[in-house]
Structure formats: structure tokens, C-alpha cells
Design a protein around this nucleic acid. Sequence first.
RNA 1: AGACACCAACUAGU
DNA 2: ACTAGTTGGTGTCT
Lengths: 323, 323
Amino acid sequence: MTLIAAADGSSLGNPGPMGWCWYVDEGCWGAGGARSGTNNIGELLAVAELLDASSQAGRAGEPLRVLCDSQYVINSVTKWMPGWKRKGWKKADGKPVLNRDILERIDTALAGRDVTFEWVKGHAGHRENEAADERARAAAEAYQAGAKPNTGPGFQGPAQAAEPLHSDTDASDVDDAALGESEQHDPDVAPESPQRLLRDLEAALWGQGPTPAVTASRREELLHDEASGVDVHGSFLSRHELLEHFASVVGRDDLLAGVASMDAVQVVTLAANTCLVTSRIEFVDGTVQRTSSVWVYARLVQNERTWQLRHHHATLVSNGAFA
Amino acid sequence: MTLIAAADGSSLGNPGPMGWCWYVDEGCWGAGGARSGTNNIGELLAVAELLDASSQAGRAGEPLRVLCDSQYVINSVTKWMPGWKRKGWKKADGKPVLNRDILERIDTALAGRDVTFEWVKGHAGHRENEAADERARAAAEAYQAGAKPNTGPGFQGPAQAAEPLHSDTDASDVDDAALGESEQHDPDVAPESPQRLLRDLEAALWGQGPTPAVTASRREELLHDEASGVDVHGSFLSRHELLEHFASVVGRDDLLAGVASMDAVQVVTLAANTCLVTSRIEFVDGTVQRTSSVWVYARLVQNERTWQLRHHHATLVSNGAFA
RNA sequence: AGACACCAACUAGU
DNA sequence: ACTAGTTGGTGTCT
């Protein structure tokens, strides 16, 4: 199974009390720091310690994906290090490369392992990145206060209940089993809190979420009569093409296609009966789309009313994914 | 006699309805605001208006002590402005200094006067600061309610009936001209045929169509307070980033960038007050985007209503153009 | 000149 | 608890 971990560093005052953290999930993370260091030393140490810890836990054989917000770290390790090694660790201006010791430590630890780095924007609500950020800062603050930091459970942790990033963006979700068949007051206005409902409907379209199987006829119902869309190639889609678009993603079992996860789902109410849903979708092939969907609470033939997708627009996210 | 005055600003929502106030004593203070502005614009305007008002009252010869809780204002005026003037109003990161117009207005008003600034901690029980704070907020609330603010007695005697000439030089009056041609019944529903209007507004955003020049403040008006977007790279855009997104395309004269033409513009009504506009945009560099925009007929602070862009999503069209 | 990150300070609000 | 408006700086590389 592929390991996915965020790595982050912190330096109060920069330079100043320094902390680092790598984070897989609540039951699996590690942190540390020093009385003084730079931001970049913290960022590098987070990666170095992650490689060591995973290796020591006997998991060096698994592919590892490192989420990191520092382009300095990613470029250093994946782009610039080969040249530095060749040219005697001198940078473009002829002066020696800094933090060479940690970089060499990372280089050694990387040997024989399958590790990829992915840049994630800092402070943008990325779960793992935020989790690592908090803990790195907490470690730095501990050193600032002269205390010892919480070093975390490390790599084993029997408390392996380990919810894998189940993306609950608000604390308000409790029950609400399978929404689809629930409600049915008829009124002309939409149900009061369509937020959660629409989040689930959007997920259902992509074969995610609580609803188990999205049948073709269910998808038919979810699309408005005059639905339209724009796909990642910039092509305008009719309702029929939009249906195919969803069908081509959902309803396949192979591991090479399909939706891996939905993220950053936001629902905003535009008017009674009209909502905008934005989200970020990761596919199992590693591509990521950013989508905007307009949903309307439309009247159906039998005077029933349901939420239906009126328009869908997708854009491919081009975040540098470095290998 | 040395004049001592507090200056403070307020912005509900920030940005949002904005107010400013300068305060000498119960018989001598002034306030104003605008339908929208930032906290810092309010703080700066309070100082600018204080300088103007005291000057116009013939008291420019007296020393003036300004009590202010914004280090941004104090540092801008007393520490950073000399450097900015020297280096062409660029800040440390190379980007242009914001609110330059008000800053220059203050700089001009300061010439030949004896003015000192003193920092006072906000919300710490400081009498004059609290008095200015209340009145600035009251002014902002007036604009929020669509009413006129109490502008205060100004600089002379208590019963000074004379309209305080302040003539509203603030940022918010640049507008009002354009868009005039849409009518104005006030009702709660949008004008009956928004099709053509929205087509023009969408074009205006891109610097196309009948509207000749799209000013920055005009663009401000066209964007909903909570506007969001997705750009061709799949990045989520906040309102601020969306503004920059449009500004970067419009407002350049060179022939190597900008919008060449808009195409295939469709307007569909999602609900009363909510419309979806799709279009195809060709840029002069040959790239083509497909866009979806959601517009809402929103209530502005003065109980005016206008169409505003609520969400914008763009995707690059990849027509197999291999060169 | 560019990019990312790390911070510091004040204010305005929800 | 959160977001936004604004500035100053350093750490690192191309």
C-alpha cells in the first residue's frame, strides 16, 4: 500500500526555535526540533526523519508519496541535487550549497526506495499539510519554552483506528444515512440546509460517498433536463455528453481509473433553489480536477422536487508533480 | 494651541461598508464612509480628512498630534513613505504599494505642517480612540443600511449648520456613472430580460463590448463580495485573486495579450436573480478558454441591486493545435 | 528578476 | 474559534 505523508517545518523568527513534523494520520506521525534553526532546515529535516522512520519500521519497500509545501525542498531533492553532486556542491554563483549535510542524508535514505514528492500549497486547507504544520509549530514552540516537544507515536501505533482522511469539513455530521430516499416535504422552497445533501449528491455522481452504487437511472434523475457542462478539454457538453462523462468514470472496477477522493467541497447558496458546489477531485491515476457545479431544486413531472445538476465545469489541476 | 485628535476607521466584513472618523472633542469631530472599503482605507481616510478639515478651518498653523491605533498608518506615513517615493512606490517584494492615492493625499496635506503621530492601543479604554471608533463604526453601519452617516459638527462652533463640504472624495464615488442604463424599479425580482444585460456585463469584465474602459473600481462593483473562481490551472480563486485575474488581462494595451473576441455566449436563468453565462473566449495569443459564470442579482448596501459575478470557472480549450 | 516557504507587527471584522 | 487588510524581514534556490 502506498504511504502518503505530509512533511513540514517551522522556525519562529527565522532563524529561531525550529520544529519539524511528518504526518501520515492521527495514529502515525513524528515531530522534533531544535533550540534554533532556519525554516528550510526544518523543512528538510521533516523529510529526512520521515524517510528514516518509515525505513526503521520496515516499510521501505512500499511506495512513499511526500506532500510538501516547500519548493526549495522538492527542487533541491529532485532537480538540483544531481547537478550539485556532479559539480562539487557549488551553486550557480559558485558558492557552496547550504544545508548540504541534511541533503546528503536524504539522498542516502532515498537509495533503492520509490519516493515521489508532490507540492501542496501551504495554508490552503490541505488536511495533512495543516496537520504537519501545526505539529511542527508546536514542536518549535516547545523548544522556545525550553520544554521537550511531543514527538508523536511514530510508525507503529496499535491505535490503528486510523480514519484515512475522511474529509469531514464540519463537525456537524452525525447521522443522515443514505440521503437519497429521505425527505419529502413538498414545499416550493428547498430544504433548509441543503449543504450536506448536495455534498452527498455531488459525491454520488462520482461514485463516492455513502450511496453505494450509482445506477445509470439514478444518474439520469440527477441531471437536469437542460443540463450542460464543460470538460477538462474545454469542450462544451450537452446533457447527453455530460451523462457519458460521468458514466465513463464511475462504474468501472479496475484500479487504473475512477475517483480516488473528493476534497475541499464547498456548497454556497445562490438563491432559494439554486446552489453552487465547488470541489477538488483526485483520480486514481493521480490527476486532479477542480470542479464547479450548479444545482437547482427543480420540479419534476409528478410535482415532486429534487436537486438536479444544471451545469458542471471541470478544469485539470496542473500542480507540478515532481518525481 | 496644540490640537490633539484621534483618527480611526471601520470596515464591516473587511472589505465591506466602511467608515472613518476623526475626533477632537464632543463639539469637534467629523465622520464619513463609503459603501465598500477595507479597514486600512478607513484608517487612512480618517487621517486624510482630519488634515483637510483642520486646514480648511484655518488651523494649519497649529501643531497637530494624531492619536492612531494603526501601525500600518503610522509606519506608512512616517517611516515607509520616503523609501516608497524614492523607489517608485514598490514594496519590499517588488509589488506596488496599495492605497497609494490616499497616501499621496496625506503626504501633500502634511507639507508645511507640524504633525506628529502617536500610537495608542486599540480597544484599551483610550477615550478619544474609543470615541472615534464608535463614530467610524456608526458611519459604516449607516452605509450598510443605505442611510447617510452623521458627519459630525466639523471644525468650528457647535451649531455649524453649514454642510460640511466634504464632498465625498473617497474611493466609492468613481462608480455610479456606468451601468446607468439598466433601469431602476426597486423590486425584489430581477429585471425581466437580463439576457442582454448580462451578456454586456460579462463582456465588460473582459474589456470587450460597448463599455469603453473597465476601471478597477468598476470591476470591484461587478464582483460579488463572496465571489470565487477556478482558473485554467485548476486553482481555486478567492475574490481578491479573481479581481487580479481579470485585471491582468484587461488594462493592457500591448497587442500580445488580452481578449481578442468572445463567442458562443449563452445566458440561462437558473432562478429569479440567478443566471448562468457560458462563453468561449479567444485571446490574442491564440489560446481559447471556455468559461462558466454565475451571476446573482444582489442587494447592495444602499438597497440598490445589481448583477454581480458570484463564481467564474475557466478551462483551456485544447483543440489539437500542434505546431 | 522570479518562485516557494518561514516569521514579525498592528488593525478590521465574522 | 475563524478570515481579511497591510506592512516589514529572513531562508534558499534558479
